[in-house]
Amino acid sequence: MGFKLLSKLLVYLTASIMAIASPLAFSVDSSGEYPTVSEIPVGEVRLYQIADGVWSHIATQSFDGAVYPSNGLIVRDGDELLLIDTAWGAKNTAALLAEIEKQIGLPVTRAVSTHFHDDRVGGVDVLRAAGVATYASPSTRRLAEVEGNEIPTHSLEGLSSSGDAVRFGPVELFYPGAAHSTDNLIVYVPSASVLYGGCAIYELSRTSAGNVADADLAEWPTSIERIQQHYPEAQFVIPGHGLPGGLDLLKHTTNVVKAHTNRSVVE
């Protein structure tokens, strides 16, 4: 069995187990497998329904001669939608809004960016022009300005110390501490036991640490421990890039980060 097929099978099995364990909360999309990078042309966006009122959005972007996937989250909030992270750029984010209108038909009224990198804030200006209120932590807003990236308009308070959590509509926002970046936030959907790890969490097929220019490698494993301790009931975990899975993604990420750190020390 090929690795790609095995990865998709694991996603399907995880979703099936969740649907059985929580039949009222989960209505997993039966329309197909989780979209992969090879299936999404740059400039297009796919939506994948995880649970009743919960979707991931998947886009792709060219970077350094390669094409990478990027995940975000959409959560229903009454007759409105909360968006977590842009679709990595203005063109993708405009396509995301169009796809949401086509498939869901509810307005996106608020959006949260989970850290300051372009795959999370690139497209904020498109959201703002569409009347979406954009939010991020003060740290993310400051770092985005320093980096020359787009800056969300509103500040999220109460997320300055490791372990801080605040309720934001249908989700809980959690600051686990520094990891992929010093400002990275985690998003949890309690009604569906869905954990969105953003770039602080890796997919299972990833074996290298990737972009760690703004990471705190020493603190990252401790931050992941905080996530595990705060959300032990999480059933569906979405990484910032690639295929979702279960809580095993947290341990896998820790292993990859520690291996990278150990290699760096040896070198």
Rank of each mutant, 00 (worst) to 15 (best):
M1E: 05
K4D: 11
L5K: 15
L5S: 15
L6M: 13
L9Y: 13
V11T: 12
Y12N: 12
Y12T: 12
L24V: 13
A25M: 12
V28A: 11
S30F: 14
S31K: 10
S31D: 10
S38H: 12
E39T: 12
P41I: 07
P41N: 10
V42T: 10
E44M: 11
E44D: 10
Q49T: 11
I50K: 03
A51R: 08
D52V: 11
V54F: 04
W55F: 05
I58L: 08
T60C: 05
Q61G: 06
D64C: 05
P69Q: 15
N71P: 02
L73K: 02
I74V: 09
V75E: 02
G78L: 08
E80D: 08
L83S: 00
D85R: 00
T86S: 05
T86A: 07
A87W: 00
W88M: 02
A90P: 13
N92H: 03
T93N: 00
A95M: 11
A95V: 09
L96S: 00
L97C: 00
I100W: 00
E101V: 08
G105T: 14
L106T: 07
V108M: 00
R110G: 07
R110F: 02
S113P: 06
S113R: 03
T114S: 06
H117M: 00
R120K: 06
V121N: 03
V121G: 01
V126N: 05
A129R: 12
A129V: 09
A130Y: 14
G131E: 07
A133Q: 14
A133C: 06
A133Y: 12
A133E: 13
Y135E: 00
A136I: 03
T140Q: 05
L143M: 11
E145K: 14
E147F: 13
H154M: 12
L156S: 02
G163S: 07
D164M: 11
F168K: 02
F168E: 01
G169E: 04
G169K: 02
V171F: 00
G177I: 02
G177H: 02
A178G: 12
A179E: 04
T182V: 12
T182H: 13
N184R: 01
L185S: 04
Y188C: 03
V189W: 00
P190C: 06
V194G: 01
V194W: 00
G197Q: 04
A200D: 02
S208R: 10
A209M: 09
G210E: 06
G210D: 05
V212M: 09
V212G: 11
V212P: 10
D216I: 08
L217P: 08
I224N: 05
R226T: 06
I227M: 12
Q229G: 11
H241C: 01
G242D: 05
G242W: 05
P244S: 05
P244Q: 04
G245M: 03
G246Y: 04
G246C: 04
L250G: 02
L250N: 02
H252S: 04
T253A: 04
V256R: 03
K258P: 05
H260Y: 09
N262Q: 11
E267W: 09
